[in-house]
Design a protein around this nucleic acid. Structure first.
Lengths: 199, 199
DNA sequence: AAGTTATACGAACGATCGGTCAGATAGTGT
DNA sequence: ACACTATCTGACCGATCGTTCGTATAACTT
């Protein structure tokens, strides 16, 4: 079951890649074994065997999305210099990630957060944990801005975290809903203004 | 079918009230006839007869949520004086509406917008229309702030609409996810700051 | 080449999905 | 009281859900 052969590893990756696309559009609950099997031209039971349960498939899909997000957003952002450049790089990479539709339905975590907001269970728990990690990361980068003298001493870090996250998520949702790109510019503009003048 | 008798009207209202609660937690797609019937102790076919299709049930649920939202948020907000007081009243009522959990899963429209973002069909169409109406309303109230001299002439109305909407929706989602109220204060603080000093 | 194990399949499971229909039950108008 | 119609039920439809299981096929090991 725990993929020793190359064939199994490949199938698992292909399956999860498809699962993430489905989940960002129709939700992790709209993700179904039958549909996955049909689209991948595999048998339902074959896919099922890789995960053991629907919930495990959902959790594996989240893990896969984390990897992709890390590769496309977190890693490149950390190549920018500490302080304001790194914070802005993170935000811009995040917006690029959503805008480029790396996943068919935009940012996976924004979508799944909204879907599991009000629920309970293992998926909810994972989403909460991810949300906390994300906020802590934003908070750390903001604190580094203060340390580097790119933001004033007295700034309310948690408040700023909330606002940046809000703007990014709204840009993602609004661009999906209206099928227009303009909201990303609104978000980056707002972030720049909020962090103080120069780009 | 078009409710002439008092009994039918009542059943329909009770059904939709329950439907809205279910939909804000598990989504309009997670809303099922069987569950609705079980929770209301009615027959599946009895409920079905009121709406004719699942999609019509979803659309009726949206209409019902609109009524409640209008009653709890829009109407009272318009009792505040034109300009800044009315804009702030609208935002505060919105936040109160979410915080009070008038619907079990917070703000219905924030939830459904996120759910149908990336989809297509009649429900998506209605959500897009509602989103546009909401943005136009916000835009109008902001413009009135300018006219009343409560905001400077050159303000970018659409940009402000985006930011206010973003902050409100994020407060709703974050409060649901973390089960804490503090995010509403973050949103109202941010809005006050963004609109300029005094409350 | 043979043996072993990972991988995938196909048929079937009970449960639930949205939806249909004939008939029982209730409410309204006369 | 009667007829009429709105409302609601219960049995049933085909499709799909997640899941199980026995079996075939591939891929590695030796």
């Amino acid at each position: 079951m725990d993929g020793r052969h190359a064939r199994g590893v490949h199938t698992r990756r292909v399956t999860l890649a498809r699962a993430v696309d489905i989940a960002t559009v129709d939700g992790l609950e709209g993700l179904t074994l039958g549909r996955l099997a049909a689209e991948l031209q595999l048998s339902k039971s074959g896919i099922f065997a890789h995960f053991g349960s629907k919930e495990e498939l959902q959790l594996a899909t989240i893990s896969f999305a984390e990897e992709v997000f890390t590769e496309h957003v977190l890693r490149p952002a950390f190549q920018a210099p500490r302080g304001r450049p790194r914070l802005l790089a993170l935000f811009d990479r995040w917006m690029d990630f959503s805008r480029a539709r790396v996943f068919a339905g935009g940012c996976f975590f924004t979508a799944v957060m909204a879907e599991f907001d009000a629920r309970e269970g293992r998926v909810y728990d994972v989403v909460v944990r991810w949300s906390r990690v994300w906020n802590e990361l934003l908070g750390r980068l903001i604190s580094e801005c203060v340390e580097e003298g790119h933001l004033p001493e007295g700034v309310d870090v948690d408040q700023l975290v909330f606002e940046l996250s809000a703007l990014g998520r709204a840009a993602n949702h609004d661009s999906l809903l209206t099928r227009e790109d303009s909201h990303y510019d609104r978000a980056t503009t707002a972030v720049r203004t909020r962090l103080g003048a120069s780009g």
